[in-house]
């Protein structure tokens, strides 16, 4: 329990750090007044601009501004989107469900394919199944997702007309973006599972297990797999973070109304408060996922649980 509290505090520090960066971004690009007003400054008088600056509080010292930014942020107020004409935070949270749904599909897909395949490869290394898996994994890791996405659209969407090529709604909409998003994690986790398993198969305690006369299946699942999970958990945890942050490319290709696409659009239109809200949201997601990874570690490895 103390461990969890400590990890929570650490996460808070991380989010705090990110908030400084997010806040600083506004100033890094120059005078925030001009960033926000953009081209509109051409049509405004100097006093109008000055009035805006005072109204937004940009004339105050930075620490006061930061304090009020944090004060507002903890209440969910990240400012107002002049483009969407709604609170910046809402712009992000509106898009979050779509991203979470797609991320979940891709995440589950990657788990159920990569780990069993990796285990099978490791049990019989350099046999046909392993060799095929190696080639597929190589492809999965080297094919860029925009190309895979387009390929899928052309084949299943345009040529076979089996699946919708864009948008969201029915289950069919999830298939192609799900595969596109999962391809890389599947390939990477499969290789990781394989190498981690092979690594642990050489360990002394596996020989001990075999010397007990237990079945090879039990050796693999009860002894090798559980030990092998540590590096895999790290990798899939980080993947979950990326997926939840929304994939810009996949969402763009498939016209998926998610967070990633929204943030990129906001950057393009200099919708500054939306970007800020998005960044903080990502930080929160990553901090949460990291906490989850650490807790999983301590479930898997008693040495961490007991602080050894």
């Amino acid at each position: 329990m103390r461990y969890i509290i400590r990890r929570l505090l650490q996460s808070l520090i991380v989010v705090f750090g990110v908030s400084i960066v997010a806040f600083g971004m506004l100033f890094m690009t120059g005078d925030p007044t001009e960033v926000i007003l953009g081209d509109a400054t051409d049509r405004m008088t100097v006093s109008q601009i000055e009035e805006f600056r005072v109204k937004m509080g940009f004339d105050r010292p930075w620490y006061v501004q930061y304090a009020s930014f944090v004060g507002n942020a903890v209440q969910g107020d990240f400012g107002y989107s002049f483009i969407r004409h709604q609170p910046a935070f809402e712009v992000i949270t509106d898009k979050l469900p779509a991203t979470i749904k797609l991320a979940s599909v891709a995440f589950i897909l990657s788990l159920v394919i990569s780990i069993p395949l990796g285990v099978m490869s490791a049990i019989r290394p350099h046999r046909p199944l392993d060799n095929i898996a190696t080639v597929v994994a190589l492809a999965g890791q080297s094919i860029p997702s925009f190309w895979l996405g387009i390929l899928l659209i052309m084949f299943f969407g345009v040529y076979l007309k089996w699946l919708p090529i864009s948008g969201s709604g029915s289950w069919q909409h999830y298939v192609m973006p799900g595969i596109t998003l999962a391809a890389f994690p599947i390939a990477r986790n499969m290789r990781l599972t394989r190498s981690s398993m092979l690594d642990f198969m050489q360990k002394d305690f596996v020989r001990t297990a075999r010397a007990k006369g237990i079945s090879e299946n039990r050796v693999v699942y009860a002894h090798v797999l559980r030990n092998s999970l540590m590096p895999i958990v790290t990798s899939i945890g980080l993947e979950l973070g990326f997926l939840l942050g929304g994939s810009v490319i996949t969402e763009t290709i498939f016209g998926w109304p998610g967070v990633g696409r929204e943030i990129v659009a906001a950057i393009g239109s200099k919708d500054f408060y939306v970007v800020q809200a998005g960044v903080i949201m990502l930080a929160l997601i990553f901090a949460g996922v990291n906490l989850l990874i650490d807790l999983t570690y301590s479930l898997i490895d008693p040495r961490i649980r007991f602080g050894a």
Binding site: K203, D204, F205, R207, T208, A211, K212, G213, A222, R226
Partner: peptide, 21 residues
């Protein structure tokens, strides 16, 4: 026979037991 009629005590007790069991 393994672990039944014939059993083994290995060299290094630090690495010969499963650390997570």
């Amino acid at each position: 026979i393994r672990g039944g009629a014939i059993s083994v005590i290995f060299q290094d007790p630090m690495t010969s037991l499963n650390p997570v069991m």
